[in-house]
């Protein structure tokens, strides 16, 4: 049996699955308990698990991640919500300097099985301080695992994998995907981190996408079909660990690569994919390695502008056509 649920409800279901399974899992954040989250993605958890395990915090991002880190060091498996990924900047010391380096600096004495969940990306007209796609920030820090699901089923399976993982994971939920629906099987869902998914097979060009860029890439592939171009779409699902094998194997067959990323141009994750493919697949290539990104500007608020600058289906189609010229 399967059920059609939203990405938003999948977050609550994934958390509930793990809270039920493991008493050391605790969930904290701003407005996450009584209010059920500002995106209503954690509704019902307080009612089922009580105020000790699902706990509201003050607006104190350093206190939230510090609590998660100290608890993870000493026997809990905390999940901490940072409401908007933009706010990771207010607790960047914990994200970039403390959490990822502690196991290493203590030479393995300390484990940090924790998850930082955060709403990432644009599409909701929130302006430049509540719309950033910052998964590439996290990717640049050794010691952090980075996950960004594109659909409700993966939200559950990857969230479960993140919570069970012994290392710190930053879990990016693309906020414009919250109302989108997808089929989810009954029962426990558990995935493996670092496994990309080929969501649409194709022969002529490989399109690598993440989170909200995945449905756009699929839509572009459908359009390309009508133009006689067969595009393969890969949903990376995780940036760390990175499933380079799936990407490289695909590019070896298609000989062409387009990456579609929401983060601004410079140092986006697509650059890393392009670099790896350039180094390891060069002799298989028949076209320029191409990135579709948001331009290197802060994201504007106006819907007309936001729609113009986030990678669109038509820009993906154009890019794919160009690499096939």
């Amino acid at each position: 049996m399967a059920e059609l649920i939203t990405y938003r409800d999948a977050v609550a279901r994934g958390l509930a699955q793990e809270l039920r399974r493991d008493p050391t899992v605790h969930f904290i954040g701003e407005d996450v308990a009584a209010a059920g989250g500002v995106f209503k993605a954690t509704k019902g958890l307080l009612e089922e698990f009580g105020p000790e395990r699902v706990r509201d915090t003050p607006i104190s991002e350093e206190a939230i991640l510090g609590a998660a880190m100290g608890a993870a060091m000493t026997g809990l498996r905390p999940v901490a919500e940072i409401m908007f990924s933009d706010f990771l900047a207010t607790c960047w010391d914990l994200v970039a300097v403390e959490i990822p380096k502690t196991r290493y600096m203590t030479d393995g004495q300390v484990s940090l099985p924790l998850v930082i969940r955060t709403a990432n990306g644009g599409g909701l007209r929130f302006g430049a301080q509540h719309s950033q796609a910052v998964e590439n920030w996290a990717m640049s820090i050794p010691g952090l695992k980075v996950v960004a699901p594109s659909n409700p089923r993966d939200v559950i399976g990857l969230l479960a994998a993140a919570i069970r993982d012994p290392d710190p994971v930053v879990f990016f939920e693309q906020k414009s995907l919250y109302p989108t629906k997808g089929e989810v099987p009954d029962g426990e869902i558990i995935d493996e981190l670092g496994v990309a998914s080929t969501v649409r097979p194709g022969r002529d060009v490989t399109i690598v996408a993440l989170a909200s860029m995945v449905p756009r890439a699929v839509a572009a592939a459908e359009e390309l079909d009508g133009l006689g171009i067969s595009a393969e779409v890969i949903d990376l699902r995780c940036l760390v660990p990175l499933d380079t094998t799936t990407v490289i194997e695909s590019v070896k067959r298609t000989s062409r690569l387009v990456t579609v990323e929401e983060n601004p141009r410079l140092c986006g994750w697509g650059a890393e994919i392009v670099s790896i493919v350039g180094e390891e697949c060069f002799w298989h290539l028949d076209g320029p390695l191409t990135r579709v990104t948001t331009p290197h500007i802060p994201l504007p608020s106006s819907d007309a502008l936001e729609d113009e600058f986030l990678p669109s289906v038509s820009r993906i189609v154009e890019a794919a056509q160009k690499v096939l010229l």
Partner: peptide, 8 residues
């Protein structure tokens, strides 16, 4: 904040 976490 991390000490808080251990105390929690």
């Amino acid at each position: 904040p991390i000490a808080n976490g251990a105390a929690w």
